[in-house]
Simulated scan of single mutants.
Amino acid sequence: MTPAPHRPPAPPAPVPDATTAGDGTPTGKGVGQAPCHHGELLQGVFLDAHGGRCAGLVTLPLDGPGSRAEFVRRPGTPPQAVSVTPADRGKAGRAAALAVAECAGLAGLPPEGGEVRLSSDVPMGLGMGSSTSDVIATIRAVADAYGLALAPGAVARLAVHAERASDPLMLDARPVLFAQREGRVLEVLGPALPALVVVGCVLGGGAPVDTLALPGREATETDVQEYERLRGLLRGAVARGDARLLARVATASARRGQRVLRHPEFDDLVAVARHTGAAGVQIAHSGAVAGILFDPAEPGDLRDRLRRCRNALHRHGIPTTRTFTTPAPNPGGTPDAPSAPSVTSKEFPDGPAHRRGDRSARPDTPRRPSRLPAL
């Protein structure tokens, strides 16, 4: 299939960095929340609107787990004097200090340090954006303490400064190609992803992946051409609501990612997808979370296919987590102004994760790397 020609998206209309939250009165205390994701559908090196190379990714939204932050300002303290609970969330601490400087300037108030308290049920090291979720929740909490709501672009800029690379969790669930090291949208691919049912699982027993220890690999011209081809196919899949084509793109991207990640179960994952009638697979390119993608429009008993898929994964020693759908589009959009998709997805509550129950998370308890997370 020939990919659709690449048309660089029109530059977005200018938006203010912040608007007032509520009545705009700073209270000295704020709260913020952020979701996570289920790894990538596509990740690689792409061309931006000027023809320059740019690392980018398209994530798979996941409704449910996330991070919540509270920030309390301490009058008279320097802006760098930020404490974080749990104490191991250093990126959130850097984000808080950056957000204090930004928000104080926008609000016309003196920058002050404070205390961040975080709670999260996003497992670490699985490639689900746990650190980005913490960072964004923290930035939003600081802004709220100054009576502001920062625009997504401002949140993205601060998040990248805090952790060097950021997932697009500050945006709505609309599928975008996001430059994670620059904090900018390379392309809005469409109003919503095609309908998919995802059987989630973890590779490597769920052991965390140290992304900084992974070997680097410079993208060749051939690599960039292939990533651009997959980008065009994904754009077409979103435009036509073609779940099968989207899954083909995700599988090709996952296979390319194995040149670095080298998950020993990857071939088994693909074989299970093929033998159970799935459309393809996706993985986190910086972690161990993965999913087998089903097209719910395919004829036959979907629940039976999902059950056989989970059983097959267990036989291969691959733990399953939750089974969920991609977010559905919100009604009321128009061709010229499509509405953002709903962030709520349907779940199939017969998976083992639901029998065990979710792990509780408290702000005074450090998030523990889990080998078998109940997502």
Rank of each mutant, 00 (worst) to 15 (best):
R240G: 06
V185C: 14
E218L: 13
P215A: 09
G333Q: 01
A97Q: 05
Q258K: 09
T326W: 01
P11F: 15
G183A: 13
L293W: 05
V289C: 12
A207F: 06
A239Q: 14
L47D: 11
F294I: 12
R89E: 09
H354Y: 15
F294Q: 07
A284C: 14
D350W: 12
L234K: 10
A254D: 02
A337E: 12
V198F: 01
E298H: 11
P168G: 07
P5F: 08
A243V: 02
P123V: 11
V209A: 01
T20H: 11
R259L: 15
G332H: 07
V270Y: 03
A312N: 04
F348L: 07
E218K: 10
E228I: 11
T325G: 08
A141W: 05
P12Y: 11
A213M: 09
A154E: 13
G64N: 03
A151V: 02
E221Y: 14
R181I: 07
A250F: 06
E226D: 11
R68W: 09
A92M: 06
L98E: 03
H275P: 03
R157M: 12
N330P: 02
A92D: 04
A107G: 00
V198A: 04
V31H: 12
A328H: 06
D210K: 14
G300Y: 00
E218F: 07
Q80K: 08
H38A: 15
P194A: 00
F46W: 09
A213L: 11
H161V: 01
G147A: 03
V238Q: 05
G90L: 11
I318M: 10
P123L: 07
V224N: 05
D144G: 04
A337Q: 13
R368M: 11
T20P: 08
P11H: 13
V249C: 09
A18W: 05
V270R: 15
R7N: 11
I283N: 02
L189Y: 02
Q282H: 15
P9K: 13
A337P: 04
C309V: 05
P16Q: 10
I139E: 01
P329R: 06
L109V: 04
V45Y: 09
V122C: 01
G153A: 15
G280R: 06
G93R: 15
A213H: 11
M1S: 10
R140D: 04
L41D: 00
R235T: 15
R231C: 05
T211A: 11
D336P: 02
L203P: 05
R240S: 13
H37Q: 05
P191Q: 01
A143M: 09
G113T: 00
C54W: 01
A151S: 13
D242G: 06
L158A: 01
A4Y: 05
T325N: 03
A145N: 04
K346L: 15
H161W: 06
R217P: 05
R355K: 05
H6L: 14
A165W: 07
R310E: 14
P264Q: 00
I136L: 09
A284M: 10
G90N: 02
H314V: 14
T326C: 02
T220A: 12
P14C: 14
D167H: 04
A104F: 02
K29N: 10
T222M: 12
H161K: 15
G357Y: 07
G204E: 11
P86Y: 04
A247Y: 05
R229H: 15
A21H: 05
D63V: 01
I136V: 15
P363F: 12
E347Y: 08
V272G: 04
P296K: 08
V116M: 07
